[in-house]
């Protein structure tokens, strides 16, 4: 297997995980007319008011149905954007996005773009940021790992602390896998980037321990929920949780995307990005050709639901640009 196949595996693996998590349909519904999403929000209120347990799902009325088919969303688009701009100065690349009103981005990225627009450069743009701890940079770090490059300058635009540690860990692991290393060495490389006295360092070691004890990815789901998730905070994209789960499931699955990604998708609060990160690690391990064919086909085409410029682009071509 070539490193190029592993890079494609990391990219498409991430997109498969992105597509497998329930929030993907929510992100992709951004492509529908605003009134359609407003109706969906009203149905949520209706369900509450009338005490019906059938929750509304993203739907279309008099609109194209394609956006709601299974497919990738924000994480795959950010990985693609990173690959396409990877040789540019990171503050400059992000600077072009600052001030644009047509993007849909994570809270960390939104705050960082505001900081850049206000003249606050990195690393303050990622540090003076309510979601400095999220996994936006960890997702982008898959591209840096693919070419064996340091993700710190990129990560520092949008994140700090655990958010940057997470990016370092993901890039180190992906680099190890793309070079043909086993999952155990990838996990070891990641842990070397995660100090024990940080939340992400503690959580990742805890997650690995409980998953090993459970023995397989699906069996590990309740144990990961109990060990990591307090359900106190409103957004489930903290790198200390999603990255920890991704490494634990990637390892305990023996690198099997088909086993690890569905387990990650079973943690609803982390389903926005933990499946994507899990898919990147396992896809980098097995390579593209080993991934399930139907998923490969469903995950490769970007819709531009977060970054409109990427609509219609083929993630395999973009990954090929790095190989």
């Amino acid at each position: 297997m070539s490193s190029g196949d592993r890079i494609r595996g990391a990219f498409i693996g991430l997109a498969i995980g992105d597509a497998a998590g329930w929030p993907s349909a929510r992100h992709r519904s951004a492509l529908l007319a605003p009134w359609s999403r407003r109706l969906a929000r009203e149905l949520d209120g209706f369900a509450e008011e009338h005490r019906v347990t059938t929750p509304p799902v993203p739907f279309t009325l008099n609109q194209p149905v394609e956006p709601l088919a299974i497919g990738p969303s924000d994480d795959a688009e950010w990985l693609a954007w990173t690959a396409l701009t990877i040789h540019e100065d990171r503050a400059e690349a992000f600077g072009r996005l600052a001030g644009r009103s047509d993007l849909r981005v994570r809270i960390s990225v939104r705050s960082a773009l505001d900081n850049l627009a206000a003249g606050k450069p990195p690393p303050a743009s990622g540090h003076d940021n309510p979601h400095f701890f999220d996994d936006a940079a960890a997702v982008r770090a898959v591209a840096f790992g693919a070419i064996g490059a340091d993700p710190r300058a990129d990560a520092s635009v949008t994140n700090a602390g655990d958010g940057v540690h997470a990016a370092m860990a993901v890039a180190a692991a992906v680099a190890e896998l793309v070079a043909g290393g086993p999952m155990a060495s990838a996990v070891e490389a990641a842990l070397a980037e995660l100090p024990e006295d940080t939340a992400i360092g503690h959580a990742t070691r805890t997650a690995l321990a409980v998953a090993r004890k459970a023995g397989d990815p699906f069996a590990a789901v309740p144990a990961l929920d109990a060990a990591l998730l307090d359900h106190v905070y409103s957004y489930g994209v903290a790198a200390s949780q999603t990255v920890a789960v991704a490494f634990a499931l990637a390892e305990v699955s023996g690198g099997s995307l088909s086993a690890a990604v569905p387990a990650a998708a079973c943690l609803p609060s982390l389903a926005d990005s933990a499946p994507a990160l899990t898919g990147a690690l396992t896809g980098a391990f097995t390579g593209y050709e080993a991934l399930p064919e139907g998923w490969r086909a469903a995950a490769r085409t970007l819709t531009g639901c977060g970054l409109p410029d990427l609509a219609g682009m083929d993630l395999i071509d973009i990954a090929g640009g790095l190989a």
């Binding site: 701890f133 006295d197 940080t198 939340a199 959580a203 307090d230 106190v232 905070y233 903290a238 200390s240």
Partner: peptide
């Protein structure tokens, strides 16, 4: 968040880092 961390047996300063 800190109370959940303390309930888990996590001690300071990690109890103040554990949550978001």
């Amino acid at each position: 968040g800190a109370i959940q961390a303390l309930r888990r047996g996590i001690e300071p300063p990690l109890s103040g880092l554990w949550h978001q």
